[in-house]
Amino acid sequence: MINWDVIFSVSLESLVGATTIVYALAAIGLNVHFGYAGLLNFGQSAFLGVAAYGMAITVSTFDLPFWLGILVGLAATVVLALLLGIPTLRLRADYLAIVTIAAAEIVRLLFRSVSLSEWTGGSDGLQSFSQSFYDLNPYSGGISTTLISFSARELWIITVGWIVVALALFIVWLLMRSPWGRVIKAIREDEDAVRSLGKSVFAYKMQALILGGVLGSFGGYIFALSLAAIQPDTYGTEFTFYMYTIVILGGAARVLGPVVGSMIFWLLLTFINALLPALVSAGTIPTSIMTTNQAGAVGYILVGVGLILLLIFRPQGIFGDKKEVMLDAR
């Protein structure tokens, strides 16, 4: 017997849940880099990582206030953007991709290194930094309906998360319809043309790198706070690859693209990962095809196939304009 209620409720919860918010914020930042400015940043996970660690180390290791932790995290994000940008933004786009993917791994390995474990907690990471955040929780109890249920803690992080998402979208929307956004999009098309028109391409690329990193860093905070713990290995390269998937799924250089992309991505993944084991246990799928242990991996395979089909039949993503994508072919 398949318990459809549970499958639907976990799917619905994932649509608005903390994970969707984290990836939406990370992808909003990545969309500024990749979608608008054409910067191939493959180290977005590092921006989320330094922000989360900046906050956690400040609060957990040094016992300083939560708000100071947020500021330290933001400062760390800006410093990372400067460190990555100064040597690479003058080079061709693909060099940025190589350097950022390497930098993200360096950052992750630093967080898990033994010699720094006194501050970072090594591969175990850090806990007990989120109390001040949950002390602010105005919800006294959770909600529980037939379809969805969230605890008070979950409600609080979801509320804060979606407010931050809305603010991030508003900022991106404002900027991308301004002359500043026009320069950014023009840089994506052709840097030399923009230079020949009297704009400092380097300065704009740096601003875009910092902006996207800072927007993404809020995803890092929500991620750490929702789990009330941080672990270095969650900030690996596959984190960034999921973000790229989401940006492309939603439609690059579209304001709402990353949010809708994140919702669809996690809805699909959660639904399939709930459905397959249920089908196996109910005997609908015989164990000769897959066992419940294998169902998880098959879920990812199915989502992967779905994304490939999407890119073939709708390369512009959900919000994109096919005409615009085809201009690339020239």
Partner: peptide, 22 residues
Amino acid sequence: KALSRLSVIDNMRLGAVGQKGE
């Protein structure tokens, strides 16, 4: 070097120097 995925008018607007909104 036409900026392909910008409209013609946006290509033109980009050329102006000393823009406050930039």
